[in-house]
């Protein structure tokens, strides 16, 4: 694979493959940044299948498209099944000598959390189990933001959405989000990772590792949503950083073939100093109803601590050596 080297933001800015200007993503939306990092990670030809959602809607309104690579949108819940068809066609046509390019094409499916955790979970599960050679990118903004901020199973505890509103009795969503990264690890996807656009070098390396890996791979990228999380639009990358620094969003990776097939975990970033979760919660109006409820904040802190500790134990027991 032809990987590209970018060490500074200036390097990244010079990389050509990105969404074209004029796309209609919200001010401050980080997914154009996520896509720039994704598409800059390699020179290999890419073919992308995109689930219905913000990204699809804002990047392709006919007669315009912001995509520099072959791209298909089929429906909401089937990006993984769609790319599995594309990848199968590639294999068959290559075998029959009908593919024009000598270069190896890489296949990527992209979905939001609604299209991945919820309605598209079966399609993703099937495609991973069948072992198709593709990378699934989940841009995770923790809710159905395209339809106007409804809860998904990625929405975190106590976040207020339009279908889990903070009311006089109920303080927002009452369930923890399910850990889809664990679910993908349980599928024995070859390479699984969590990433953040704030730590873009880490994210780019993960994309490169995923694309170098034969078989199904998965990266869960946090994608703060300005209207959905309700914060000033210049804070998206900062919030992604605070999510990582507060250990709310753990940057880690997993390889199923490590440790003789037992699998291996690696936490890629350990915050040097403790950052209170309140720093992450406070700028987001979806949490404003709990800022004066220390017992609810403690719930979140405990949950974060449990997740971190669990992952540290896994890493200790099954370390992933580079």
């Amino acid at each position: 694979m032809a990987t590209k080297k970018a060490r500074t933001l200036r390097d990244l800015a010079r990389m050509k493959r990105a969404l074209a200007p004029g796309h209609r993503a919200c001010a401050g939306c980080p997914f154009p940044v996520i896509l720039k990092i994704l598409m800059s990670a390699t020179d290999d030809p890419l073919v992308i299948a995109n689930a219905t959602g913000c990204m699809e809607v804002t990047s392709t309104i006919f007669p315009y498209t912001a995509w520099p690579v072959p791209w298909i949108h089929n429906a909401f819940e089937n990006a993984a099944a769609t790319i599995s068809g594309v990848e199968s066609a590639y294999k068959a046509l290559k075998r029959r000598g009908k593919i024009k390019t000598e270069k190896e094409i890489k296949f990527i499916a992209i979905g939001g959390d609604g299209g991945t955790y919820d309605i598209g979970l079966q399609s993703l599960s099937g495609a991973i189990e069948r072992g198709h050679d593709f990378l699934y990118i989940l841009y995770n903004n923790e809710g159905y933001m395209n339809t106007g901020i409804q809860r998904s199973s990625a929405t975190p505890m106590y976040a207020s959405t339009t279908t889990s509103p903070a009311g006089k009795v109920i303080p927002g969503k009452l369930q923890w989000r399910k850990e889809i990264t664990d679910i993908m690890i349980a599928h024995q996807a070859k390479y699984v990772a969590q990433a953040s656009p704030s730590h873009w070098v880490d994210f780019m390396k993960k994309v490169q590792k995923a694309l170098e890996t034969k078989g199904p791979t998965f990266i869960n990228v946090i994608s703060p949503c300005q209207p959905g999380w309700n914060y000033p639009p210049d804070m998206s990358i900062e919030l992604a950083r605070l999510a990582v620094e507060s250990k709310y969003w753990i940057l880690y990776e997993y390889r199923s073939d490590a440790n003789n097939g037992l699998g291996g975990y690696k936490i890629n970033y350990r915050p040097r100093k403790e950052v209170s979760i309140v720093e992450f919660l406070k700028p987001q109006r979806r949490y404003r109803h709990i800022l004066d409820r220390p017992e609810l904040i403690k719930d979140i802190e405990d949950h974060i601590r449990r997740n971190w500790e669990r992952l540290e134990r896994l890493e200790k027991e099954l370390p992933l050596e580079e």
């Binding site: 030809p45 073919v47 699809e56 809607v57 392709t60 309104i61 006919f62 498209t65 995509w67 520099p68 690579v69 072959p70 791209w71 298909i72 949108h73 089929n74 594309v86 066609a89 590639y90 046509l93 593919i99 024009k100 390019t101 270069k103 094409i105």
Partner: peptide
């Protein structure tokens, strides 16, 4: 879709 020299967008919002 596999004609990588002529990238096209299939299934845009309309």
């Amino acid at each position: 879709l596999l004609d990588i020299d002529n990238p096209i967008t299939i299934g845009p919002l309309d």
